[in-house]
Amino acid sequence: MPKNKFQEVIFTIIMVFFMVYAMICYNIALNTGALTNDVFLAAFHELVIMGPIAFVLDFFIVSKLAFACAARMVDLRNSHPFSKILAISVASVAFMCPLMSLAATILFKNAGNQFVAVWLQTTAFNFPMACFWQLIYAGPIVRFIFRHIFRENESVSETVTE
């Protein structure tokens, strides 16, 4: 969907917000044992830390890896758009989830000598939520917002066809 670097930055910022905020809420709810109204406010404090980490990882590393993996799963030039979106989304989650779980483990978990076990458990708990959230909610919402921010000039195509 993004057609240039500026659009890639905007798309990544929007996606990072929707994915990271939801995953922070999910993790706080797991840690406290309940999803309360306070969770939604508390998540903004962690978003300030985790958002930039997610942006840097996604924009500079993961997006390239995800596209390369997706290209191995489907023909990105000739496949149905849904197949492309699915392949890219799944590959993105497959890379981002362990990396963001690693960051959360380092910054928030106080894992001590159980670091590897805590990181693996965090990744295992996060992966199903991240995958479903990405495919069913965040991805479609972000693409909808992005399409409306970067609408192609419809009047030009109408003039050409007349």
Rank of each mutant, 00 (worst) to 15 (best):
A34F: 10
S63D: 03
G112E: 08
V16L: 13
F17W: 09
I28M: 05
I85C: 13
T105N: 13
V90F: 05
F11K: 00
F132A: 06
N110H: 15
A104P: 12
M19Q: 07
F125N: 12
Q121G: 15
S157I: 11
I61A: 03
L47G: 03
T32I: 06
A70Q: 04
F17H: 08
M100S: 00
V156H: 10
S79P: 11
T159Q: 09
I145L: 09
F17C: 04
T105S: 12
R147G: 15
D75T: 05
T123W: 15
F11V: 06
I10F: 07
E8G: 15
R151C: 10
E162H: 10
M96F: 04
A68C: 01
I13D: 08
L86V: 03
V118C: 07
F40Q: 12
M96H: 02
W133R: 10
A87T: 05
D38A: 13
L99F: 04
I10W: 07
P2K: 03
V93S: 00
Y137F: 15
A91C: 04
F67C: 08
H148A: 06
I145R: 08
H148N: 13
R151M: 11
M1N: 09
P2W: 04
N126F: 04
F115G: 01
I149F: 13
F55N: 04
V62D: 05
F127T: 09
S157P: 14
F95G: 01
T105Q: 03
D38W: 01
A138D: 02
L30C: 08
A103R: 01
C131H: 10
R77T: 05
A71Q: 09
T123K: 00
I49T: 01
I13M: 14
L76Q: 02
F125M: 14
R151Q: 13
L57C: 08
C25F: 00
V56F: 11
L107K: 14
K64F: 15
H80Q: 12
F144K: 03
E8K: 13
K3S: 04
A42C: 10
